[in-house]
Simulated scan of single mutants.
Amino acid sequence: MKTLYSVDKASMLDINEIIRLRVALLKEVHEIQSEEEENKIVNATKSYLETEISNNNFVSYIAKSNEEVVSVSGVSFFKRPPYLENLQGIEAYILNMYTLPNHRNQGLARQLLEKCIKECKKRNVKRIWLHASKDGEALYRSMGFEFKGSEMELFL
């Protein structure tokens, strides 16, 4: 039987689940090496999310299976000085794209990324950028992102 997933915009009530998957991601890519580092990340991320979700500078989409968050995305919005390709200076950084291993290859990351891009279009973002893991590169390329140095970008 195929697993059913729901995909929704995260709320303040989902902060602990966003953090749980962020920690899993950071452990998987070996950026958290100890319990002390994990505690620092958890506390700093909680403070960041409480502020930035409430002031609408950070948006996350989550996928759930049986009420468990199994996949997460994040997009941080900011404004920088204008440049020729982006005269409004509105940009977004995609981060925190992560799916629990036993829920991968179900199209969840694509669905979450599509929602992030739609949110960016709604906000008149001109440039979206991210740092891709090796596992994520194919998805981002298929969605139009191109490498520029060590990052990938998509102009809308």
Results as ranks from 00 to 15, higher is better:
Met1Leu: 10
Met1Phe: 10
Tyr5Ser: 00
Ser6Ile: 12
Val7Lys: 03
Asp8Tyr: 11
Asp8Gly: 00
Ala10Asn: 10
Ser11His: 10
Ser11Arg: 02
Ser11Met: 10
Asp14Met: 08
Ile19Ala: 11
Arg20Phe: 09
Arg20Lys: 15
Lys27Pro: 00
Glu28Trp: 07
Val29Ala: 06
Val29Phe: 02
Glu31Lys: 10
Ile32Trp: 04
Ile32Tyr: 02
Glu35Cys: 02
Glu36Val: 15
Asn39Lys: 13
Asn39Phe: 05
Val42Leu: 06
Asn43His: 07
Ser47Arg: 07
Tyr48Arg: 10
Tyr48Trp: 06
Leu49Glu: 13
Glu50Gly: 02
Glu52Leu: 05
Ser54Val: 07
Asn55Trp: 06
Asn55Arg: 09
Asn57Gln: 14
Phe58His: 13
Val59Gln: 13
Lys64Glu: 07
Val70Trp: 06
Ser71Phe: 01
Gly74Lys: 02
Gly74Val: 00
Phe77Cys: 03
Phe78Asn: 11
Phe78Pro: 01
Pro81Gln: 09
Pro82Gly: 03
Tyr83Pro: 00
Tyr83Met: 02
Leu84Glu: 02
Asn86Gln: 08
Leu87Ile: 08
Gln88Arg: 07
Ile90Phe: 14
Glu91Cys: 06
Ala92Lys: 03
Asn96Trp: 01
Asn96Ala: 05
Asn96Val: 00
Tyr98Trp: 13
Thr99Glu: 12
Leu100Ala: 08
Pro101Glu: 04
Pro101Gln: 06
Asn102Ile: 05
His103Gly: 04
Asn105Phe: 14
Ala109Trp: 14
Arg110Thr: 14
Arg110Gln: 14
Gln111Met: 11
Gln111Lys: 15
Leu112Tyr: 01
Leu113Gly: 04
Glu114Met: 03
Ile117Ala: 01
Lys118Thr: 04
Lys118Glu: 15
Cys120Asp: 06
Cys120Tyr: 02
Arg123Cys: 06
Asn124Ala: 06
Arg127Thr: 13
Arg127Val: 15
Ile128His: 14
Trp129Tyr: 15
His131Thr: 12
Asp135Thr: 12
Asp135Val: 04
Asp135Ile: 05
Gly136Arg: 02
Gly136Met: 09
Glu137Ala: 11
Glu137Leu: 12
Ala138Glu: 15
Ala138Met: 10
Ala138Pro: 00
Ala138Trp: 02
Ser142Trp: 12
Met143Thr: 10
Glu146Ala: 10
Phe147Met: 08
Lys148Trp: 07
Lys148His: 13
Gly149Leu: 04
Ser150Thr: 11
Leu154Tyr: 04
Leu154Gly: 03
Phe155Cys: 05
Phe155Ser: 05
